[in-house]
């Protein structure tokens, strides 16, 4: 099971970095770069080298992961994806650095936006902006599921006893980590959504799409949580095949959502303040602007969001997300079945 996750994560990371480089005419060029530059032989060479580096790194990470498992055991199964997480940002930053150098050498290719700013006034269909209720509803549904599962398991023997029986039932099935992952997904979604509501970016159309995607994710996690709890409470074992099927559906769904986001993103012109902000993207990856009130920034590739590291709140969020991912990987290792 853990081996499948590690191999899948290694390949998905590699494919993702190859794919995102293509969707926006190679996104480390930035949105302000002129089409002439993107089509130039030098730019094509940078793209080619970037893709080769990603492919080689993916292969190297897979090899390192395999070697680590054979030398140190299954505890080291996450070495491959971990190495990719370190290597890919550096490969990206290097490509971004080369593009900037190319731009400096060819001033005629710079599509400078100057000080003229433009904003679309119409073509803004009304999208649904969620309230706090819709954010917290899935959590409430998850809590009701937990209470129901405890009631079924406890048979009136008290909360502590019911919890112990439920935990034991889940541990015996060997898939209790799924519960942790789902709880984590719900918590992270709620946190992100609440932060989104305090961010100025919620007012943009793409942000509202992102919020809707987060709420969908939250509902899926709540449904899975309730399902897992009921299976545990009623003694129905979740088989390996069923878990794989759920993961497959989740992966296919995630890719579908990403493709859909790309189509939708084309309809939205990013805010002008971000269009001319290449100098605010450190390494081409991290947006840093203390004067920008927005915490969430439309990412450079046009779909999705990143954080404005010029605001303090971005740091605890990043540490929390990275900590959660590392914690999940560390937890998955020793519980290999």
């Amino acid at each position: 099971m853990n081996l499948a996750i590690a191999v899948g994560a290694t390949l998905i990371l590699g494919l993702f970095y190859s794919w995102t480089s293509r969707i926006n005419g190679v996104f480390f060029f930035g949105r302000t770069v002129s089409p002439e530059l993107r089509a130039s032989a030098e730019a094509r060479a940078i793209t080619q080298q970037y893709l080769i580096s990603v492919a080689v790194s993916t292969a190297a990470a897979a090899l390192c992961g395999w070697a680590a498992v054979h030398v140190g055991g299954s505890h080291y199964i996450s070495v491959g994806p971990f190495l990719e997480c370190i290597a890919f940002p550096f490969i990206f930053a290097k490509a971004n650095h080369r593009v900037r150098a190319l731009l400096l050498a060819h001033a005629e290719w710079s599509a400078s936006t100057g000080t003229v700013r433009e904003a679309a006034l119409l073509e803004q269909p009304q999208y649904w902006v969620p309230g706090i209720g819709s954010i917290l509803l899935p959590v409430v549904a998850g809590a009701i599921g937990l209470c129901a599962a405890l009631t079924i398991t406890g048979h009136g023997a008290g909360l502590a006893s019911a919890w112990a029986r439920l935990s034991s039932s889940m541990d015996s099935q060997g898939y209790s980590t799924i519960l942790g992952l789902e709880t984590g997904m719900i918590s992270a979604s709620v946190g992100i959504l609440v932060l989104f509501r305090t961010s100025a970016r919620l007012r943009t159309r793409m942000a509202q799409y992102t919020v809707r995607a987060c709420i969908t994710l939250e509902w899926i996690a709540a449904a899975l949580l309730i399902l897992t709890l009921f299976c545990a409470a009623s003694g129905v074992a979740i088989t390996r095949t069923e878990t794989r099927a759920v993961l497959l559906v989740a992966i296919v769904g995630a890719f579908g959502l990403m493709s859909w986001n790309q189509t939708r993103a084309k309809r939205f012109v990013p805010p002008a303040v971000e269009l001319g902000a290449d100098d605010r993207w450190r390494w081409g990856l991290f947006y840093v602007d203390r004067t920008d009130p927005a915490l969430f920034i439309q990412s450079r590739c046009g779909a999705g969001y990143t954080l404005n590291y010029g605001r303090f709140a971005a740091w605890p969020i990043s540490i929390g997300v990275v900590g959660y991912l590392i914690g999940t990987l560390a937890f998955l290792g020793p519980h290999s079945h």
Binding site: R117, E118, A119, A120, L121, L122, Q124, Q126, A200, R201, R203, T204, P271, A272, V273, P293, A294
Partner: peptide, 25 residues
Amino acid sequence: LLVSGELRPGDSLPTVRSLGLDLGV
């Protein structure tokens, strides 16, 4: 835009925060 009729009665303009972000003010 209003006098020329490009913006018509009933049209909704962006919120002040959204337009401020787009224009960089």
